[in-house]
């Protein structure tokens, strides 16, 4: 336009308004659409390490396999021990080894599904890496997120990790057979769950003894 030298330009503030996790969220939405189109009910499991996700899942898969076509994806940092345990339920199981990543992302789920025909499934479980912090930010396209806490972890777990409890749909209190031994205060645990996620369904059960499993399975069957 003209050849006069430009004066120094001041910093310019530009509005962006971009969701940082947009890529994951879009992919999760795509997955959710795929699951719905194929009529697959998808539930994910989050908990701290050792809360009993795998034992719970093994019992759930075993109970369901007679009635419907069920499969599982299992996230783990390094080993495939959980996938090997779940294979005992004699349903299709795939391992997602995350390496150093402390949570699953939608992209990992999409990759793990490669080659599976969703039309041949009714129900899919996604077991997240044992971690009560990081998985809370990542949508995996699931229909239901389960948060598990074992009685040995203490009643105040929901207050310590309110975000993950708040993003979950159902809470499962595991290892209920040990409640008396560790003096677990069930009332207080339930109150804490309701405090961080009012109205959340709570199940108390033991995968080991089978106590409480029926009630949980009834809820699941009502959603299939």
């Amino acid at each position: 336009m003209n050849n006069t030298p430009h004066p120094p330009r001041l910093p310019r503030l530009i509005e962006v308004r971009k969701n940082v996790l947009k890529r994951n969220d879009l992919l999760a939405r795509k997955l959710r659409d795929r699951f719905r189109a194929a009529s697959v009910f998808v539930a994910s499991l989050v908990s701290s390490p050792g809360a009993g996700k795998t034992a719970f899942l093994e019992k759930t898969l075993t109970a369901l396999r007679a009635q419907c076509r069920v499969a599982a994806l299992v996230g783990d940092l390094a080993t495939d021990n959980d996938a090997a345990r779940l294979a005992r339920a004699e349903v299709p199981v795939r391992q997602i080894t995350t390496g150093t990543v402390c949570h699953l992302e939608a992209e990992m789920v999409e990759r793990a599904l490669d080659g599976w025909n969703l039309d041949e499934l009714d129900c899919l479980f996604i077991e997240n890496v044992g971690n009560l912090v990081c998985p809370s930010s990542y949508d995996l396209g699931e229909e239901m997120r389960l948060v598990l806490m074992s009685v040995t972890e203490g009643e105040d777990k929901p207050l310590k990790y309110p975000t993950i409890f708040n993003t979950a749909d159902v809470a499962i209190i595991t290892k209920i057979d040990l409640a008396a031994a560790v003096e677990f205060d069930l009332k207080s645990a339930r109150r804490n769950i309701q405090s961080v996620r009012p109205g959340m369904r709570v199940f108390e059960l033991s995968a080991k003894t089978g106590e409480g499993m029926d009630e949980w399975l009834r809820l699941l069957q009502s959603r299939l």
Partner: peptide
Amino acid sequence: LTPDVVRGRELELVALELTY
């Protein structure tokens, strides 16, 4: 008690300051 979250889950890139 209310589970109805209106705001508070944001993780949003709002703006950038650019210099030349």
